[in-house]
Design a binder for these strands. Structure first.
Lengths: 153, 153
DNA sequence: TTAAAACCTCAAGTTATATTGAGGTCAAAC
DNA sequence: GTTTGACCTCAATATAACTTGAGGTTTTAA
């Protein structure tokens, strides 16, 4: 089998190429690999080679990060992709569905935050009973402090 | 002047009290002070004392953080509060107005993200031309990588 | 008055998400 | 064949936002 043929069928992408195409640095690809977010194999000279679908994985990682999802969570969700075969469009759609709900929740949270922010910060009382910021049943994880009660000052 | 009187008029809050009332740790109050987010004075024994409005400052800091605003940005906005007098309700309302716009922007961004996430991740092309995630004129600062173009895989 | 609780400072540690650099190897172009 | 750019590993550094701990002082309450 000629070399060209081999290249065509296996799509060995170098780390530099993947970096350029995906817009992340080579060091980030190394980092993602140590974190188990992407995979590569090595050529004869110990250099990384990637399948084309790594580009979509990276796109998905970046999209999920923009949604506020941590790399650990992203890793867990990516783990639901098929291990043996290249993911299909359906596989990716299933992923996006998982995140859609989180995104909806986050948007709803931000909207509650917006609707109340004047009432909470701008008003004279700062009573937190109705406020999404300080209601411990209504936060998004960043704020574990629970309810905070403030009196007039 | 009796001591009680002094306490009543000056509202010397101890760091422990402020911590308990605001729901943050004493170490966090120290930290915020080194960062210039809150202020205190010292009593005879070098212990911190606070005015009551520190409680609102902390509430505001926490609210802003929940909106995704960094401490540096919060510091800048808090710096627009009056320096000499205790901030009034109007002062606080002006603050919240500054953040309202940022919050609106962030919500709009998340909504665009949601509206496109299926199209971007779930679809077969991953062409990024219409996608808010990869459009460098439409991000929120976390993602400096600029436009990323991906082809079919 | 004395013991416990609260406070002080300053340095180091923590987590997440990477980036940078040193020292060395591999591959591609001339 | 040699030079140059791409790649390798591993350790250190960076940033944000805190937390922890050691060693010592002050306040409070019995």
């Amino acid at each position: 089998m000629p070399i060209d043929q081999k290249k065509l069928t296996e799509a060995n992408l170098t780390v530099g190429y993947v970096a350029k195409r995906s817009g992340v640095k080579v060091s980030t690809l190394h980092f993602y690999e140590t974190k188990g977010l992407i995979r590569s194999w090595r050529n004869g000279g110990n250099q990384r080679r990637y399948k084309k679908d790594v580009l979509r994985r990276i796109a998905v990682i970046k999209a999920a990060q923009a949604m506020g999802i941590t790399l650990d969570e992203i890793k867990q969700t990516l783990a639901t992709l098929p291990d043996q075969r290249t993911p299909t469009q359906k596989d990716w759609a299933a992923l996006s569905k998982q995140w859609q709900a989180q995104l909806d929740e986050r948007i709803a949270y931000m909207q509650r935050l917006r609707d109340r922010v004047d009432g909470c910060i701008g008003c004279g009382c700062l009573s937190m009973s109705k406020c999404p910021i300080y209601n411990k049943n209504d936060h998004l994880g960043e704020n574990q402090s629970g309810a905070i009660l403030l009196e007039r000052d």
